[in-house]
């Protein structure tokens, strides 16, 4: 536990001072018991004059977080792995159900509604931001 706290403090300490990016409404969908995968969602506002991109997400709770995009074309739902999510200058990108999302294998013990999980977002310009994402039971 002490190690985790230390890790958390370290991670928090690495948060960049880039005021141009604001991460909001982060949440993790609670998974059914035993479900192998979980998804997380959030909104990123890029208030700066520079284009940027989300290039990865890490967390002490989830060993591997992938970025995916769901889309339904001609009635077929598809999910694709993406390497980066573009964040245009003065734009806003929403990771939301049915679109971009973070996908991760469910850890043991499984995070349940009410818990909060630290996510660190890594950006193309080298910046990082940490958010605390509540686990929620909702669509």
């Amino acid at each position: 536990m002490r190690f985790l706290l230390a890790l958390l403090a370290l991670t928090t300490g690495m948060v960049s001072a880039d005021g141009g990016l604001a991460v909001q409404n982060a949440w993790i969908r609670e998974a059914p018991p035993g479900a192998s995968m979980m998804a997380a969602y959030l909104t990123i506002d890029n208030g700066s004059d520079q284009d940027n991109a989300l290039v990865g997400v890490s967390s002490p709770t989830f060993p591997r977080i992938m970025m995916h995009r769901s889309e339904t074309v001609d009635g077929i739902a598809r999910m694709q792995h993406v390497e980066r999510i573009a964040l245009p200058a003065h734009g806003s990108v929403e990771l939301a159900p049915g679109g971009y999302h973070l996908m991760m294998a469910t850890p043991d013990p499984q995070p349940v509604a009410g818990e909060r999980v630290a996510l660190t977002l890594h950006f193309a310009d080298g910046g990082e931001q940490q958010v605390m994402a509540p686990v929620k039971k909702k669509p």
Binding site: P32, A35, H68, G98, P139
Partner: peptide
């Protein structure tokens, strides 16, 4: 659907 699907199926 399938249970390994974390986004579209739970939604």
């Amino acid at each position: 659907g399938y249970t390994h699907c974390p986004d579209v199926c739970p939604t």
